[in-house]
Design a protein around this nucleic acid. Structure first.
Lengths: 140, 140
DNA sequence: ATTACTGCAAAGCATTTGCAGACTG
DNA sequence: CAGTCTGCAAATGCTTTGCAGTAAT
């Protein structure tokens, strides 16, 4: 599978590797790290290099096609299609499963800062704890 | 300066390097990364190794004396005394300054998750944008 | 004296970079 | 065909680990 669902982004040279990376991201319901994107693209296509994946991801992030985040307590970054919807995640400490959150705690919130003026351009929220499969093992 | 303000934590062997690291953290108003802790400790004492600092920080985190976080878009972890108060930070994209937030967006918030049951044990919030010194350079 | 801790060096892991050949528009 | 992109290898930066000597209780 090598097709992207949407039209090709403007101002981005179309190469086999870029199509592959975009297709992988479009077809993933959850964010992926570079290594995962790399092996999925490789499975579909056969010839792609990890450093190329990083370069493509950087480009896509710069173009606003993809968003980059880093899951807490995790050494690596995760990437997903920028679907222009505001999303946050809950991460299970037990199994590392990532669960989408449907609401955002920042909706009705104004930060109170020591330093006076601060122009907020974005925020990051992550909740952690135990999912229904992992929580059972532990005492309340 | 080599003194710690509070009494020495129980169950932790007291060494010169550990005292130094704890003193550095106690005297810092803002979180520091390992390299910064290392050079401050070195300045005070002269003989300490970066890998030792990492080992000491891991120990302190495990003992609950220190908390570890990772500032967004930044490759390294930051550490600070666990003052048992709930704190979040705003990070300036321009100068990387870290500014404390006095309120918490999670106070009156219940996450709505796809996956049903999830026992929340903690959360992480980070706001980013431009501080008063860096914001001026950029257009509104 | 016994056990844990540190100095030091080297490895580890995610990510980045340099370069020459290959491909796109 | 000019310029960009990729394969590949090697470097980078933060952090971890192994080992033998040193220090703490």
């Amino acid at each position: 599978m090598n097709e992207t669902k949407t039209e090709w982004p403007a101002g981005v040279k179309r190469t086999r590797q870029r199509q592959e990376v975009l297709a992988v991201l479009e077809n993933s319901p959850s964010p992926l790290n570079a290594e995962e994107i790399f092996s999925l693209a490789k499975k579909n296509d056969g010839s792609i290099w990890l450093s190329t994946v990083y370069r493509i991801l950087d480009l896509f992030v710069k173009k606003g096609i993809v968003t980059k985040a880093s899951a807490m307590n995790s050494a690596f970054a995760i990437y997903e299609m920028n679907r222009y919807q505001h999303k946050h995640y809950a991460v299970c400490i037990g199994c590392r499963k990532v669960i989408q959150m449907d609401n955002c705690p920042m909706e009705k919130f104004t930060p109170r800062l020591d330093d006076g003026d601060f122009r907020v351009t974005g925020h990051k929220v992550e909740i952690y704890g135990y999912c229904k499969d992992c929580g059972a093992e532990l005492p309340q």
